[in-house]
């Protein structure tokens, strides 16, 4: 009997040791997820807490799925993610390669490169809002003074330019995430394959294309995964710069759901949107993760 309990205890030990982690995950992740799923099935309004008890089925979902504005914002969010992440990757790669080349002042440059990340997204938003202001903004003033244009370019009003402007601000703030991770990859790269390739007569492009790039791709996908999860921080920038306007031309799923949830106080409907947004994030993460595994397999590394 005692033996039975001892074996049983031994079997339970790992579970017991994991309990703090399990409980934390339960409270921090699982419960809020279940709670928000429930609220998305109610007409929950922050200002009328009793509405959380009213079950209305999938009405909130039907409402957002039949709303053209929601789908437009959804599509725009995917476009925003795709452009921002790719541009950040390319610029980050360029910066990492250049910094990797230099021998003097590299540390200082690495520090300077991280400056944009130190600002809160709200400040970045205000800063670019005034840079892109058509009347008193420095960009238009500079363009006019240099004689490049005699027009006041409406950066934050024209549909395409407004998307460009918010993507520009986002790229300015977050490119260094890619640069730092890719630079770490470059630092970790063994020299032997590079030297062997040179001995074999490869030119610089071939070395980059067939050795350097495959080696740092896992780092790139890690950066993409991290960014695809935290890119929703761009909400602050968009909120400050355009708040989704004019006439919804820069409306992203995040600006829409914050307005519905907090300003309109319709938290139930906002949570339905948030679920769609979460699924979108999971899809992006899953996509980059499969890419990461493929890139590692290609390099013969651990999966």
């Amino acid at each position: 009997m005692i033996r039975y309990f001892r074996t049983r205890q031994a079997a339970l030990t790992p579970l017991l040791l994991l309990m703090p982690a399990i409980v934390t995950m339960l409270f921090v992740v699982a419960l809020p997820l279940v709670f928000s799923l429930w609220t998305s099935l109610t007409p929950y309004r922050l200002t009328r807490p009793e509405t959380i008890e009213v079950f209305i089925g999938i009405r909130n979902y039907v409402r957002i799925f039949t709303d053209d504005d929601f789908w437009a914002a959804f599509g725009r969010t995917i476009l925003f993610l795709a452009i921002a992440l790719n541009v950040e990757f390319l610029l980050g790669l360029g910066i990492a390669l250049l910094i990797n080349k230099i021998t003097w002042g590299q540390r200082t440059l690495r520090t300077i490169m991280m400056f944009p990340m130190m600002f809160s997204p709200i400040l970045v938003g205000f800063q670019f809002k005034f840079i892109f202001n058509d009347n008193i903004g420095i960009l238009n003033n500079a363009l006019q003074s240099l004689g490049i244009t005699d027009q006041a370019i409406p950066w934050l009003v024209d549909g395409r330019l407004a998307m460009f402007s918010i993507i520009f601000a986002e790229v300015w703030m977050s490119t260094s995430v890619f640069a730092i991770l890719l630079l770490a990859g470059l630092f970790a790269m063994p020299r032997d394959p590079l030297e062997a390739a040179r001995v074999d007569g490869c030119n610089a492009w071939q070395v980059f294309r067939h050795i350097t790039l495959p080696f740092i791709m896992p780092f790139a996908f890690i950066a993409m995964t991290i960014r695809s999860l935290d890119v929703a921080r761009a909400y602050d920038i968009v909120q400050v710069m355009t708040d989704g306007g004019p006439a919804g031309r820069t409306e992203l799923i995040w600006t829409m759901l914050a307005r519905v949830g907090y300003e309109n106080a319709r938290m139930g409907q906002a949570n339905a949107m948030a679920y769609v947004s979460t699924i979108l994030s999971v899809a992006f993460t899953y996509f980059f993760f499969t890419k990461l595994i493929a890139a590692r397999r290609y390099m013969g590394g651990a999966e």
Binding site: K129, N133, D134, N135, I136, A152, I153, P154, W155, L156, V157, A162, M241, T242, G245, P246, A247
Partner: peptide, 22 residues
């Protein structure tokens, strides 16, 4: 009016007038 007004809030109009260009 400035072409950017659909995006203006109070600080834009205040600073704009203060700049003497309105």
């Amino acid at each position: 009016v400035p072409a950017g007004v659909p995006n203006y809030l109070w600080d834009d109009t205040g600073l704009g007038f203060g700049s003497g260009t309105v």
